[in-house]
């Protein structure tokens, strides 16, 4: 979690310093979801499909912060050679796309393929509360239920779709939407990675054992802007959210020395990743004869 946090803070710093172009969507404050769910997935067998806010999922699943940093830096050594940027990533069994609602159908197709292959793979698809406005979500809940797909839907409800609060975009109950399709659904309002992990572990196990979809609603808090520098929320409100900081909660349980050691190791990895990225050739640079 700390690596993800510092990775994204580094990205925002680099954007502010004019060292990066393009866009990014950070999950600062939401890290426990990525780590708590993906801890139960096997990167060799299982599949993760993610969205524009994908860095946490990517790092938790692939442990490839250097590849992602190089990708956002537009380097040849990036995850997709600089073609995808922050929100279009593919590595091994990890896929993201940047269009809300586009990824659900892809996840259904992947889960269908894995069901047919019969090797017990679970596909997890991450979506946000904003994506619940897309019609494809409900087409996909329907198909996942009808076809008994080994698919875990994870809704990270950070209560904002870009700048629009959920009260203006999401009616009724999120979990009940899944239950209406005959899909079991569970909700959690906690930033503690151990709570997320416990719930997600049970869900993943059931999806794998029963070959049927499951639906998690993780109520969460985004401390950072939707993208970068576009936060119109009251700073005092964001400050109040910080009691839900997963790093503080998990870090508080650690022995001081252990925590310092983890943080130092993450800083070292990030520094190495940044240096490697800076040394790598820029994608699209014309080769000198």
């Amino acid at each position: 979690m700390y690596l993800i946090r510092r990775f994204e803070e580094t990205l925002l710093d680099m954007f502010s310093a004019g060292l990066l172009v393009g866009t990014t969507h950070t999950c600062i404050g939401q890290e426990a979801n990525a780590v708590g769910v993906i801890a139960h997935l096997d990167p060799q067998r299982d599949v993760v499909v993610s969205n524009h806010r994908c860095h946490g999922h990517y790092i938790a699943f692939t442990d490839d912060a250097p590849g992602l940093l190089a990708e956002v830096m537009g380097r040849e050594t990036g995850t997709c050679g600089g073609r995808g940027g922050s929100q279009h990533l593919c590595r091994g069994n990890f896929y993201t796309n940047g269009v809300q609602g586009s990824i659900l159908p892809l996840a259904v197709g992947i889960a269908l393929a894995e069901r047919e292959r019969g090797e017990g793979a679970v596909t997890a698809v991450f979506l946000g509360d904003g994506t619940l406005g897309q019609g494809t979500v409900y087409e996909c809940l329907n198909m996942a239920s009808l076809w008994s797909l080994p698919l875990l839907f994870v809704v990270e409800n950070n209560r904002y779709a870009q700048s629009t609060p959920a009260e203006l975009a999401v009616s009724g109950s999120i979990a009940a939407r899944a239950r209406a399709f005959g899909i079991e659904a569970a909700e959690l309002d906690s930033a503690d990675v151990l709570d997320v992990s416990e719930l997600a572990g049970q869900a993943v196990e059931r999806v794998r054992a029963r070959g049927a979809p499951s639906f998690l609603v993780l109520h969460t808090h985004r401390f950072s802007p939707h993208s970068k520098g576009d936060d119109t929320r009251d700073p005092a409100e964001i400050e109040r959210l910080r009691v839900h900081d997963p790093i503080t909660i998990a870090g508080g349980r650690l022995d001081h020395g252990v925590r310092q050691g983890i943080e130092a190791e993450c800083e070292r990895q990030l520094q190495a990743a940044r240096e490697a990225g800076e040394a790598a050739p820029a994608a699209g640079a014309v080769a000198v004869q």
Partner: peptide, 17 residues
């Protein structure tokens, strides 16, 4: 089901795998 908006993506997911 009658779900063309998704079916193209379902086919894509199968093809990717």
């Amino acid at each position: 089901p009658i779900s063309e908006a998704s079916l193209f993506g379902v086919a894509a997911g199968m093809a990717l795998r």
